[in-house]
């Protein structure tokens, strides 16, 4: 089947699958809402002075005692929960997407090199990947975050915290891309078209870039989609544990942490709505990834 034929086939399968349509729409709406937050959020939740204690602990607008200005109620300081969720989702997604892009790039490069070169490079890289894979993501991420905190005490501020999180999550996730791409590269490298390119005098890096890379991309895309859900979850967990995003620029995980600390004062909306947003986002991405895996059906290690 030609490249074009494959693509239209995927498009048709997409339109026909309710699972794909619903999950993709859900994910796109959430992503759009997050990145358009400055335009659609009714309040600016993290600018001091833009909210007042007078409005604190208001229930959602649809409940008795609610205020129509605050759709999902307000927190202990009078911040609008709905706006906080929009901005929080933006931070969660930014960390997740950046971690996925970074780990996919590094993992693919390492996988290509290990598969193409073989020998000692291959053996060492794959042993390292094995060891990393045998430990839980959250543990390694916590250690990285702890070390970063000790070495750079300023790393707890907004931008630096994002960078630490991206690194802490990526250090685990590159291994999956590397293993899969390596396996695929080993197969491709023995095929006739690569031999033909080699005989025609095409250089090594050009063979990797122009010939092998396009053929290993479909498993990379599938892993990336599934890993986006995992990365968003990992970020949320770290922020919930108090070693991720600080309360001054909170992600969904930070919002849930703050809400959890006030669980017993009865203001459940401060924790339930951010948690629902997180679960919805992860569920949509997971379902879409699930469908994509079945549709593209790549060889995954």
């Amino acid at each position: 089947m030609s490249e074009r034929g494959q693509q239209t086939g995927l498009g048709r399968a997409f339109v026909r699958s309710p699972k794909a349509l619903i999950s993709a729409t859900g994910a796109l709406v959430l992503i759009a809402a997050a990145y358009l937050a400055p335009f659609i959020a009714p309040h600016t939740p993290f600018e001091l002075g833009s909210f007042s204690l007078m409005d604190s602990e208001l229930p959602p607008a649809f409940l008795p005692g609610g205020d129509p200005r605050f759709l999902l109620g307000t927190d202990m300081q009078g911040r609008d929960v709905f706006s906080a969720i929009l901005f929080g989702t933006r931070i969660s997604l930014t960390v997740g997407i950046a971690a996925v892009l970074f780990s996919a790039a590094v993992g693919t490069l390492i996988g290509l090199l290990a598969g193409f070169r073989g020998g000692l490079v291959d053996a060492v890289l794959m042993r390292v990947a094995d060891v990393i894979l045998s430990f839980p993501t959250i543990l390694i991420a916590l250690l990285i975050s702890g070390v970063a905190r000790t070495l750079f005490p300023l790393a707890t501020s907004g931008t630096a915290a994002i960078l630490v999180l991206i690194f802490a999550i990526s250090i685990n996730e590159w291994t999956q891309y590397a293993r899969t791409v390596r396996g695929q590269t080993l197969v491709e490298k023995g095929l006739d078209y690569v031999q033909a390119a080699r005989i025609s005098g095409v250089g090594e890096s050009a063979i990797l870039r122009r010939h092998i890379l396009p053929n290993v991309l479909s498993p990379v895309i599938v892993i990336a989609t599934i890993n986006l859900a995992l990365a968003v979850l990992a970020e949320a967990t770290l922020s919930f544990l108090g070693v991720g995003m600080p309360p001054t620029s909170p992600s969904l995980g930070t919002l849930i942490r703050i809400g959890n600390e006030n669980l017993f004062s009865g203001i459940w909306w401060v924790v339930v709505f951010p948690a629902a947003a997180l679960v919805l986002l992860v569920l949509c991405v997971n379902l879409f990834g699930d469908w994509l895996r079945d549709a593209l059906n790549p060889r995954l290690d």
Binding site: A229, L233, A236, T237, F240, I256, N260, L263, V271, A275, L278, V279, V282, L283, N286
Partner: peptide
């Protein structure tokens, strides 16, 4: 699998 452990616990 889409609900993180800490959310289950809080609920």
């Amino acid at each position: 699998i889409s609900v993180p452990t800490f959310v289950t616990g809080i609920m």
